[in-house]
């Protein structure tokens, strides 16, 4: 049956936490209650938590780099990337050359209702056309509206943060985001 110490200790923990939440400030300011500062929760619509730079929020498309090679679409485990494209003739790179055949991207849709945010498409892209951005506010009331086309994906390109430096001891090279 209840002995005192354990029960009292428990009361102490909750009281301490309440105190820390209500009076988070130090020194004489301790007396001013500031729960907004002491609470760990973020009051979402008023203030927004910044996700880490690597956060996989949404996939942005840098359209100029995309060659419609279909790699991402084929590697996608959920079959949620739809690409259509056609070939066009482009002028040669240098004078006297032959005209080149390049791929033009007509459609690049990602169905975020299906997407599992695994990042395989970003990883397999050989031309640096797909990037993760921590942007997360793109919910839709209807599930069908979650199919985003290449214009929308392109808009997110602005929110792509630069790649982070690595911790010492790493041999990875820091990549650059095309702007």
């Amino acid at each position: 049956m209840p002995r005192l110490p354990g029960l009292i200790k428990g009361l102490g923990v909750t009281a301490r936490t309440a105190g820390r939440t209500l009076f988070p400030k130090r020194g004489w300011k301790t007396l001013i209650p500031a729960p907004q500062k002491g609470a760990v929760t973020v009051q979402y619509p008023h203030e927004k938590e910044a996700p880490p730079d690597r956060a996989r929020g949404v996939i942005a498309l840098h359209e100029e780099n995309c060659t419609a090679c279909m790699l991402c679409s084929r590697q996608c485990p959920d079959w949620c990337i739809y690409i259509e494209g056609h070939k066009v003739k482009a002028p040669p790179r240098r004078e006297g050359g032959k005209p080149r055949t390049v791929n033009m991207l007509d459609r690049f849709d990602i169905d975020y209702a299906l997407c599992m945010y695994c990042g395989i498409c970003v990883e397999v892209c050989p031309f640096d056309a797909l990037f993760w951005t921590p942007e997360y506010e793109y919910s839709e009331p209807r599930i069908a509206d979650l199919l985003h086309d290449k214009d929308r994906l392109g808009e997110w390109m602005e929110t792509v943060p630069d790649f982070l430096d690595y911790e010492t001891g790493s041999e990875q090279k820091v990549r650059k985001v095309p702007r």
Binding site: A68, M70, S73, R74, C76, W79, C80, I81, Y82, I83, E84, G85, H86, K87, V88, K89, A90, P91, P99, T101, N103
Partner: peptide, 21 residues
Amino acid sequence: PGVVDIEEIPEHLEAQLEAEV
């Protein structure tokens, strides 16, 4: 979706497009 492939340039138009470019 990966079964879709890039649409090729129709053969009869190829020469014409090349010349235009």
